[in-house]
Design a protein around this nucleic acid. Structure first.
Length: 227
DNA sequence: TTGATGATTCGCT
DNA sequence: GCGAATCATCAAT
């Protein structure tokens, strides 16, 4: 009985200027914003509740740190485009290209609060727990139906876009912390999320844990033995 | 051409 | 809480 908002306009795409800023600024600015994907199967959308910034050449944790390649080419293009990559042999991750063209900075979308197309997301994810439909970057891509086919898509005027409606944060505060799943650059608090939000990934949901990043003690014998 | 790695997730104990 | 699964991409040879 959900009154699908086919008639109610979910806003318009944010202008390219929104993305043409520092990724840390953009990561914070997208929290509570509506991300929409008009997929062939129908529209799915959700509010971004967690995002991480990656700063290209200045950031050892970024795919772009070692320079431009075929895979990360989208990041070196104009801001306001999608960068989708495949990792761990099973997961796709969705990024928003930010900063000036050539800077290769991006914002990783880590978690969404489902808004529209919940049933379609459940179908794709194979779970009924709403809070987990789009929790974690791999799940975000799966719930939205994002694959490498969406790599390089224009977020301004395409099927995948971010709405200019005012952010809806549901009373949650914006918190910051170290990024997840990386071994370098942990000293930079470039992960932004809505504190206490049930859809946020991580140890205790959206609760910040001080002094200890996830995975900090998980590598007793570092395999990173490059000279 | 080959070997190694990874911005993860899930299931089992 | 911990370890396995799984494959595209990259760098070196």
């Amino acid at each position: 009985m959900r009154k699908a908002a086919s008639g109610a306009a979910p806003g318009r795409p944010l202008p390219r200027a929104f993305y043409a800023r520092d990724p840390v600024v953009v990561a914070r600015a997208v929290l509570g914003r509506l991300l929409v994907h008009d997929s062939p199967q129908g529209r799915v959308s959700g509010l971004i509740v967690e995002a991480e910034a990656y700063r290209g050449a200045d950031d050892p944790a970024s795919h772009a740190y070692r320079g431009r390649t075929a895979r990360n080419a989208a990041m070196f293009g104009e801001p306001g485009h999608a960068y989708v990559y495949f990792t761990y042999g099973m997961h796709h991750c969705l990024n928003l290209v930010t900063g000036p063209a050539g800077k290769a900075s991006a914002v990783l979308v880590r978690a969404l609060e489902p808004v529209e197309g919940g049933e379609l997301m459940r179908e794709r994810r194979g779970t009924s727990a709403t809070a987990r439909l789009a929790r974690g970057p791999g799940n975000v891509a799966r719930a939205l139906g994002i694959t490498r086919a969406q790599d390089g898509l224009d977020l301004v005027g395409g099927a995948l876009w971010l709405s200019d409606l005012p952010p809806r944060r549901g009373g949650h505060r914006i918190a910051r912390g170290p990024r997840i799943g990386i071994r370098v650059g942990l000293d930079r608090d470039w992960r932004c999320f809505l504190e206490g939000h049930p859809c946020v990934s991580g140890p205790a949901g959206g609760t910040p844990r001080e002094g200890r990043a996830r995975g900090a003690g998980r590598f007793p014998a570092p395999r990173l033995t490059r000279p």
